[in-house]
């Protein structure tokens, strides 16, 4: 899992090129960081004084925010708290339909 792979400068309007991470790769980043945060969160609930875990949590939160931002910019909202000029919530398939890779 790489945090700083946002070398891709593409947005909704640019043409796909081979350097752009695919939707699947972006989704995997979001999922991976989300998982790391959930797992560290449970650990920190019973080990709140573990500074190493706390530092990791901070790092992954930052990575997660960036990964979500990257995904949403290109593929639309992952939650309804992301505003777009049109209602893009309907564009991507639903997770239970296998749309999550």
């Amino acid at each position: 899992m790489e945090c700083n792979n946002n070398t891709c400068s593409c947005n909704c309007t640019c043409k796909e090129n081979s350097k752009c991470p695919t939707r699947e790769e972006m989704m995997n980043d979001v999922r991976g960081f989300n998982f790391a945060i959930v797992e560290l969160g449970l650990y920190l609930d019973t080990h709140p004084d573990d500074t190493r875990a706390l530092a990791l949590h901070k790092e992954y939160c930052k990575c997660y925010k960036e990964a979500v931002e990257r995904y949403q910019k290109k593929y639309g909202p992952l939650s309804i708290f992301y505003p777009c000029n049109k209602w893009r919530w309907l564009e991507q398939p639903w997770p239970w339909e296998g749309g999550n890779f």
Partner: peptide, 14 residues
């Protein structure tokens, strides 16, 4: 409750 359009682990059954 707040929904995120993603599964915790991908499920794609062929």
């Amino acid at each position: 409750w707040s929904y995120n359009k993603i599964l915790q682990y991908p499920i794609k059954i062929k």
